[in-house]
Simulated assay, not measured.
Amino acid sequence: MKRALLAFCMLFFTSVTCLFAQDIRFSQFYANKLYLNPALAGSTNYSNVSLNYRNQWPNLDLPYVTYSVSFDNFYEALNGGIGITVIQDDQGDGALKTTTFAGMYSFYLRINDDLIVRPAIQAAYMQKKVDWANLVFPDQVSPIYGSIFPHNTSGDPANRKKGGWDFSLGSIAYYKDYYFGIAAHHLAKPDLSFDDEQEDKLQTKITVHAGAEFVLGGRSRRYADNWILAPALLYQKQGDFSQMNYGLYASKSSMVFGLWFNQNFEPNYDSFIAMVGFVTERFKVAYSYDYAISKLIHTNTGAHEISFSFPLVADMNKRRKRIKAVRSPVF
């Protein structure tokens, strides 16, 4: 019956005159840096591959599951970073899939020895697809015998796949141990409605993020016994939806701990995000959990998220210091 209800809800919402979709939200913001801001492409001294997995509200029979894979590198010939990323979001056991392919370029602009600015541009293709295979519709269900009737397809959308091009801009500036970034995604506002007479526009998303790093004791980061604290802020607004995130990372040696407070002003959904990560020169991996503290605490079990990334270099000890890397959090 839950799948029947899901199918009914999907048909209801796609029949609304004007819809405004929203983006996926990852909790490990900087572990999926290309999704956060295209200006972070090529922001380290080596090429990097990142994998991300998010499972939201896993207590539901049909949770929201999102996967992403990305690659980025700094190219001296281009004086900038190139990044590519693929993201797939599955809703309703794959009944509704949204896939995004994006490529970006960030320009490396050195103002002086301490101040670096990186403007960026991104182009993407988005596709939304409906798959009825695993769904049971209300007209198939008998109150007594269950799912026994064939589905009447006359009211189904004729086009079950819709795509559109999109463009985004971003920039980040960092001065010594401080950084500030801003990004504007979906400037083209792609229409992903399955009905040509209706709209399902993806509204422009504005992201502002900032932070700093402080070494306790004032000694160099080269000392493994020093604690490093990294406070951070992240604000996002998309259509009528806005949220503020207040975070703090604490790292020592190979361990990284993070705690974020997520405040959604509408519809007043608040949560804590707790994270633990392990970082080496060969790879970094982290796990985070979203814990709801609003009224939704009784209706969901938060969200699980796992990230894994590794550099693509043959010998980490021989890599060149080509650029001044961004002092942003690793997760």
Rank of each mutant, 00 (worst) to 15 (best):
S168G: 13
N152M: 09
Y291H: 15
D139K: 09
T280H: 02
A286N: 01
A21Q: 13
T153W: 08
T301L: 11
P190F: 12
K161H: 06
G217P: 02
F278N: 02
P38R: 04
F8N: 15
L11M: 15
R118K: 15
D156A: 11
R54W: 00
A41Q: 03
D93K: 13
S242R: 10
T301M: 12
K2H: 11
R327N: 09
F308G: 02
D200Q: 10
M275W: 02
R327V: 04
F180V: 15
P119R: 09
Y235I: 06
Y125R: 07
I293N: 12
F194S: 06
V49E: 01
A224R: 07
P58Q: 04
K295R: 14
E305S: 02
A325C: 05
A286E: 00
G42K: 08
H151I: 07
A224E: 04
F265Q: 10
K284W: 04
M244W: 10
T100Q: 08
S307L: 00
Q198M: 13
C9P: 06
G239W: 10
S106L: 09
A274L: 12
W227P: 01
V313G: 03
R118I: 04
D90I: 00
V16A: 14
P157I: 10
G170N: 04
L192E: 14
A212D: 04
Y64K: 03
L96D: 12
M275A: 12
A325W: 06
R222P: 01
N59E: 15
G42V: 08
L187Q: 07
S154F: 12
M126W: 12
D90V: 00
V279T: 00
V136N: 11
L36M: 08
Y64D: 05
S43R: 02
D195W: 09
R3V: 05
I293V: 15
A303D: 08
E197H: 11
I293W: 12
F12Y: 15
R322H: 08
L234P: 07
N79Y: 11
Q91H: 06
P138D: 08
D156L: 14
Q236K: 12
V256S: 02
K321P: 02
L216Q: 04
L312M: 09
N45M: 01
N262D: 11
D72T: 03
D93N: 15
P58Y: 02
A4T: 15
S288D: 07
V276D: 03
Y64S: 05
E199Y: 13
A250W: 03
R110Q: 14
